[in-house]
Nucleic acid binder design. Structure first.
Lengths: 245, 245
DNA sequence: GAGTGGTCTAGACCACAAT
DNA sequence: TTGTGGTCTAGACCACTCC
């Protein structure tokens, strides 16, 4: 029954996995755009020639991965990058009160450059490949909280550097809206480092002050490394929180 | 149908949630011990008067929370605290090579004391309540990697202090085996701090060296805060890794 | 009221482990 | 061979959204 649909792969895996992969490919290909409501479970079941329960299992797995959002009574929506998702999935800095808010941003520089060794390794490109670098300071509760250097491959983000200081605070929403690149997951490596003189000036602390350095590599729907960012964060009025479940 | 079983709560929630809570209570009460194989899905379905699918949904949710481990062909096992689980669920320090290994431990002190303000707040007890403190240095690849102060309520862990320097490396396995306390989840707060003189001596670095401070509060099956630990970690040869999915 | 996903059931067959 | 969990199906009813 599954062989009828062209995009199902031949190798044996559970049906719902194959459906899941087929649907994910259609998301990545732009067949359905962020915010769109997918066909209903019954419609998809018909299309793929499987039962509704199998479609359901595929969609539930995709919802767990934040690829889609399910709404009872309304339908299944292709996930969008809004403030809420940025906060819950990607922003782990909490204030002293245990609350978190998205930081505001002041862009200091946005320009093309050649990838250095770290950037090249993280983005999976050759050293010297053209990238765009965005350097900004981020404030929390009107206090400078972190410096941040965002690096993306220039090829994937044409003309991004022309935005200059107009690069928006919600940058993943920009990636998705302007470049059709949906960040799906990321890995963060955390280090304790000493503030250099630039950090110190921007954050208004003494050089040598311990900072939490966060090196994030973000991956899109097609499993491409699309962003590398290094944040250096004061932990006097905030901290990084991780739940081990 | 659901009212027949005594431990199902009356308030309305989906059946599988009620089953889930009932089963979790039986785990917490010691009705089934770690390592034991639960009754089969069909047996549980009969006992609770629901269908096998409902039991399955409850067990799958519990497996996702690491309360049980499912083995096709063998049965559903009550989760145990072994090295593997310690590593995958609770230990987030990776080496330069991207690998992780459980660190070894050298216990420096293990004694009773009165809870200070931080400990009391984290453990949800009054300041001055008796606790046991375990102070140790942990090595990775034969190099000192972190200092660690573990604090637990003395009431929950009687005579723990008598172990002295014999406190084992795999401490959650000890909690479970000797005190029937199963750590289920934890929250970690991360800070960048400067090494004090004691840290510096133990870790063989200069005072003031930036260290990654990890403050963990661990919670057991009954949602009691059973452990507070503060680790101060060098990030020269290792880092903290977090996957954002 | 029509249509969606959420829950619940019942039954079939498969993959795997233990014996 | 027996029993377990894993997959897949089919159908019922409920809760919710939207028109």
């Amino acid at each position: 029954m599954s062989a009828e649909h062209p995009s199902l792969t031949p190798a044996y895996r559970p049906l719902y996995q194959q459906i899941r992969e087929a649907l994910t490919r259609r998301l990545a290909s732009g067949d359905w755009s962020p915010g769109v409501i997918l066909p209903s479970e019954t419609a998809l079941a018909q299309e793929y020639g499987v039962s509704q329960g199998t479609i359901r299992k595929a969609l539930d797995a995709m919802a767990a991965d934040h690829l889609v959002v399910r709404h009872q009574g309304r339908g299944t929506e292709v996930a969008r990058h809004n403030d809420e998702r940025s906060l819950f999935q990607f922003f782990h800095i909490y204030g002293e009160d245990g609350q978190r808010r998205l930081p505001t941003s002041r862009v200091l520089r946005c320009s093309r450059a050649k990838a250095n060794r770290d950037e090249a390794a993280a983005l999976n490109v050759h050293k010297g490949t053209m990238v765009v670098r965005i350097y900004r300071v981020r404030d929390l509760n009107e206090r400078p909280a972190m410096t941040e250097l965002v690096t993306v491959p220039a090829e994937l983000f044409p003309d991004l550097e022309l935005l200059g200081k107009e690069v928006p605070n919600a940058i993943y929403e920009l990636y998705q809206r302007r470049y059709a690149i949906s960040v799906q997951r990321a890995v963060e490596q955390l280090y304790a480092v000493a503030a250099n003189s630039k950090d110190a000036t921007l954050l208004n602390v003494q050089p040598g002050t311990p900072l939490l350095e966060i090196r994030r590599t973000a991956v899109d729907l097609e499993n491409r490394s699309v962003e590398y960012r290094v944040s250096r964060c004061l932990t006097r009025h905030q901290h990084y929180l991780n739940e081990l479940v």
